[in-house]
């Protein structure tokens, strides 16, 4: 136990937690926008898998992380178009359509991986701030700062982007016309419609934002791990959906949830590697994040109200 409570180990664990939280954060922030407009997307995990494969394959073929990010975004956008058409224009039930997207992503990403790649070859890992080409040197002193260096600066650019998105999404939802429309459609689509807000268009755009971020979440995951594999996400997308409820549809609380998830997971693995958690109990420890999420939902659910029109399709009659 004492080994864990040294400053360096605790900060290293926190640093890992932050990195670990990034894919959750991208996916959950995107899902927050979608849900605020009244659309639940359970297919996040499938979109992450497709985006993750797209990014992995792009980097494998071109060695460019920028193209990897673009690939992840593009795949996410494409899947968003599909999901948007299915749920907004064809009025399909959201929960179940999401399962369809998930299954398609699970199977199709695996199929593409087996056919186009086969052998799981590592790609070049995402560079940290101080490893960036050309400008990396500028950041070296920052990374070498004690404590805050490894904690805050020793990360890749996507990590910074994910955390910058938190205030950005807050601003989008609170201060922009689009954001007001999103909230209006999510709460009372009939009223919004009568005020001249296009429910379909608002929801469609929200879905595109959410899905594109899910694609980016997958791209981040596969580029951080520098590999792709069948079912790489192992349920991260579903947990990201849970984090939106957990965070009461507020970006900053969603971020808190993602960080908590990162901390619990990173601490568990760290404790296992230090033998604080004995080998025999590792499975029980692996339940912890799920159990904590359920307990948190029990405490929060009755106090927080979500968007009133969540999962309700809208049609003008």
């Amino acid at each position: 136990m004492s080994e864990f409570f040294t400053v360096s180990v605790i900060f290293a664990t926190l640093s890992t937690s932050i990195r670990f939280a990034v894919p959750y954060l991208f996916a959950a922030l995107g899902e927050t926008v979608g849900q605020r407009s009244g659309v639940l997307n359970l297919g996040v995990d499938g979109i992450m898998l497709l985006g993750g494969f797209g990014a992995y394959y792009a980097v494998l073929e071109t060695d460019s992380h920028i193209l990897g990010v673009i690939a992840g975004l593009a795949v996410g956008l494409l899947m968003g178009l599909v999901y948007g058409v299915v749920t907004v224009f064809l009025h399909a039930k959201q929960g179940i359509s999401g399962i369809g997207i998930f299954l398609f992503g699970l199977g199709f990403s695996d199929l593409l991986f087996q056919e186009l790649v086969g052998t799981p070859l590592p790609i070049r890992p995402l560079p940290r701030l101080d490893q960036l080409p050309a400008v990396g040197g500028i950041f070296e002193p920052l990374v070498e700062l004690p404590v805050v260096g490894p904690l805050i600066f020793d990360h890749d650019l996507l990590t910074f982007l994910a955390f910058l998105l938190v205030p950005a999404v807050t601003w989008l939802l609170r201060k922009t016309t689009f954001g007001m429309n999103v909230r209006a459609v999510g709460e009372n689509p009939q009223a919004a419609d009568s005020l001249g807000v296009s429910v379909a268009r608002t929801r469609f755009i929200s879905i595109l934002i959410g899905s594109t971020l899910a694609g980016l979440a997958g791209a981040t995951l596969s580029m951080q791990l520098a590999i792709f594999q069948q079912n790489l996400t192992n349920g991260i997308g579903f947990i990201a959906v849970a984090l939106v409820y957990f965070g009461a549809w507020q970006p900053r609380w969603v971020m808190a949830g993602a960080l908590l998830y990162g901390i619990v997971t990173a601490t568990r693995i760290r404790w296992q590697s230090l033998d604080i958690i004995p080998q025999g109990a590792s499975d029980v420890a692996a339940m912890a994040p799920a159990v904590i999420t359920i307990l948190a939902l029990v405490l929060l659910a009755s106090r927080v109200r979500g968007p009133a029109a969540l999962t309700r399709p809208f049609s003008r009659h």
Partner: peptide, 23 residues
Amino acid sequence: IPNALAIALNGLIVLFVVSSDRV
């Protein structure tokens, strides 16, 4: 042909069937 094809197909069937109500 990888049997992942069947999983992808399952997903497509769900999407097409749930969309068909509107049609």
